[in-house]
Simulated assay, not measured.
Amino acid sequence: MKKTVALLDYGSGNLRSAQRAVERVGAQVTVTSDPEVVLAADGLLVPGVGAYDACMEGLKKVQGPRMIGQRLAGSCPVMGICVGMQIMFDKGVEHGVQSQGCGQWPGTVEKLDARVLPHIGWNTVEAGAGSEMFAGLDEATRFYFVHSYGVSRWEFVPDGLTTPPLVSWSTYEQCRFVAAVENGPLWATQFHPEKSGDAGAQLLENWVKSL
């Protein structure tokens, strides 16, 4: 029986390409903002394209932060892509505007310290040791990025009681930034797996298998 994935429709992201990519690796995908469907699915995929503040406003209109929080409280898988990853952090600062995020991780999304922006194109990722997300992929594998903002400082402080998130990094020019995070049921990528060819398909297949 196919795993079910709710692809959250909140007015942001290329939903069709994400839907096709996840269907291609064997999941049944429903594009929706219906809380009942979102909460019942095996996995929730949160896309995101554009400004942090606009994405948060769209999420709030469909009760996205509440649905994400409810799923994670019940250890139900969620995956964020691009700005869908960024909104999992405490806040984002763009063009002098500070916006509150979903607060799943401490940290601030800020403009990358690079001469040429956006960071657009193919880049490698330094996968964290023991990563399930990058299983079957080697260090030379490239993924497709398009962004000007990211998280350059990981601010999570281990409390000794819970397993800390597994963080994977990438570097653009001289700027090192968070490329992906695995935190129990919450996975997220700064890059676009749905636009990353066979490598992205392998990563999405790893996620679907984990549901």
Rank of each mutant, 00 (worst) to 15 (best):
D42Y: 15
D42Q: 08
L44H: 09
L45M: 12
V46D: 06
V49M: 06
V49C: 04
A51M: 00
A51F: 03
D53I: 14
C55H: 13
C55E: 08
E57V: 01
E57F: 13
G58N: 05
L59Y: 12
K61Y: 04
Q63T: 02
G64F: 08
G64Y: 15
I68C: 13
I68S: 01
I68F: 15
I68N: 01
Q70R: 12
L72T: 01
L72V: 00
L72G: 01
A73R: 04
P77L: 12
P77E: 02
V78K: 08
G80S: 13
C82T: 08
V83R: 06
V83N: 09
V83P: 00
M85Q: 05
I87G: 01
I87F: 13
F89H: 00
F89A: 01
D90S: 15
D90W: 09
D90H: 07
K91A: 14
G92A: 08
G92E: 08
G92Q: 15
V93A: 03
E94C: 13
H95N: 06
H95Q: 12
G96R: 00
V97P: 14
S99Q: 03
G101F: 13
G103A: 07
Q104I: 07
Q104H: 10
W105M: 06
W105D: 09
P106M: 14
G107C: 08
T108K: 15
K111M: 15
K111I: 05
D113A: 11
I120H: 04
G121L: 04
G121V: 05
W122E: 15
W122L: 11
V125T: 04
V125Q: 00
A129F: 09
S131A: 01
M133T: 09
M133P: 13
M133R: 09
A135C: 11
